[in-house]
Write a protein that binds this DNA or RNA. Structure first.
Lengths: 135, 135
DNA sequence: CTAGAAGTTGACACCGGCGTCAGATTCAAG
DNA sequence: CTTGAATCTGACGCCGGTGTCAACTTCTAG
């Protein structure tokens, strides 16, 4: 598929896709004429890149992470050097902390939503009002 | 406490603390001479602000969130508008997805680290080698 | 009182992620 | 071949969060 379709399907601008490629996050075959040609795997990858950006990681860290994630087809891509293993371990710990932070933030959000919505009890116009009960 | 101490205790630069204040995220009493004077609550608040930044929220959203958090002393401050509750709920769901993604990423990382380090079994020179067993 | 540490405001700059425009090239349909 | 849509590269700029420097004021120890 070409860049326009990938952009539509992943919900990311073409600009960003080219930027990802420039950052080494996303690769593409080229048609004889030089147009980018992506496989199906690209959609998932782009979505994953987005998630990592949203998680507050920058291009460099994402670039370190991505080659180690299997892309649907299950190819483990690269095997790691000892050095890389250390770096990945460090990254894992950072991820752990990040997740813990985010969970705390989410819980804080939950508190706020609970407090606020109980304060508004009488006005359930909001439709999607209360947060889902399970958790 | 004054800005230097708050900076040390929260691990945030003085510059950022002043920036937070400019963004309406953090308030301070002033000494007669104009120096900022923070209470104990400030440390927790700054840390929370950091966590929210790390969660990918921007100043504006944090500014909307903060007045709804009770700050230690338990003052519920403002009650949220229905509109805000909806936005916060959406934000919570975004966070949920983000966390799920990150957990998956972390698990993938774990797989890679396991695979790689069992492949390197005989060379535990790396010191901080394998990932911590518990989890 | 005095010196030096610490704080104040204001400005300028950077960097990362991305929007956007321009001009050239390629692709697909007639 | 022609034409219009899609893509290419390269450049400029914005915005948010911080670093940093400058010039000045305030606080505190001696």
């Amino acid at each position: 598929m070409r860049i326009g379709e990938l952009a539509r399907r992943s919900g990311v601008s073409e600009r960003s896709l080219r930027y990802y490629e420039a950052q080494g996050l996303l690769s593409a075959e080229r048609t004889p004429g030089g147009h980018r040609d992506y496989g199906e795997w690209a959609v998932d990858r782009v979505i994953r890149i987005q998630a990592l950006y949203a998680a507050g990681l920058n291009s460099k860290k994402i670039a370190q992470l991505l080659p180690c994630m299997r892309d649907g087809d299950g190819s483990p891509s690269d095997s790691a050097t000892p050095r890389l293993v250390d770096e990945l371990t460090a990254e894992r710990e950072r991820l752990d902390r990040l997740i813990a932070d985010l969970v705390r933030s989410r819980d804080v959000l939950d508190d706020i939503i609970d407090t606020a919505s109980t304060g508004l009890e009488a006005a359930p116009l909001t439709g999607s009002g209360g947060r889902p009960p399970g958790h």
